[in-house]
Design a protein around this nucleic acid. Structure first.
Lengths: 119, 119
DNA sequence: ATTTATACATAAAATTCTTAGGTATTAATA
DNA sequence: TATTAATACCTAAGAATTTTATGTATAAAT
């Protein structure tokens, strides 16, 4: 049993970005299981972002229900793993989400650094 | 009465970023009123981001309640305007939120572009 | 022997935003 | 000049997402 559980982040900015993160990691890594995703995100952000399981698992189930992910259950060392991978639809959707992310970042930079809006 | 009301954005990424946007605009412009903020955001993002009033006004009230904003009511052309400006506490908090935003953007870029994580 | 790490899960509460109203004045247009 | 659009505020129900708090179970480490 966990002593305590870490939050996704102290800042609220990550709200709404979890699905995009999951989809992108699966595009990059072909197939991953839930726990692996939490560890990968922690590593890539040098510990700054820790996805909570209470957010991750429902998100994976929803993406699967929407037909963006396929799941394959495997037993490794007598422990269950549920490997997720992108469906065709998921691959298309990932591209859309990533271009939305680029727009978002560009817009936030314009808002925060108004000098850049002269272009 | 409005025919229809526009949403904040088609993507969900903006969730959690509204407060940061408000604080930053007030840092940049000294004092602004609600409607002005919606127009400024629309202009700076070239129409890509339209803040809904149902999100904006409660957010302003909350920031005021938290002591980050001061309000001053003015009547212009027989129409009410509520000008908001940063308090001392608000100025400090804005700096924090902006550094969180920088971290967030950096982390998202690392997640989306893993090549960059070799640094 | 106990704790930590691995690996899944759900459910109540909190938070944030969308949607959908509401009021009122001024400016523009048909 | 009657209607619509723009300006300017507001709230409340519902949806969506996340936090917090649990739960189960096995393997590895202390």
């Amino acid at each position: 049993m966990n002593e305590y559980q870490l939050q996704m982040s102290n800042s609220k900015l990550y709200k709404g970005s979890l699905n995009t993160i999951i989809l992108k990691l699966l595009e990059e890594n072909t197939k991953m299981y839930g726990y692996e995703i939490t560890q990968k995100v922690k590593a890539l952000t040098k510990g700054e972002l820790e996805i909570t399981e209470g957010a991750l698992y429902p998100a994976l189930h929803k993406l699967e229900a929407e037909g963006l992910l396929d799941v394959e259950v495997v037993k490794v060392d007598n422990r269950m793993r549920k490997y997720y991978k992108l469906t065709q639809k998921g691959t298309t959707e990932t591209a859309n989400r990533l271009s939305e992310l680029e727009s978002f970042i560009r817009n936030m930079e314009h808002l925060v650094n108004p000098k850049w809006s002269i272009d």
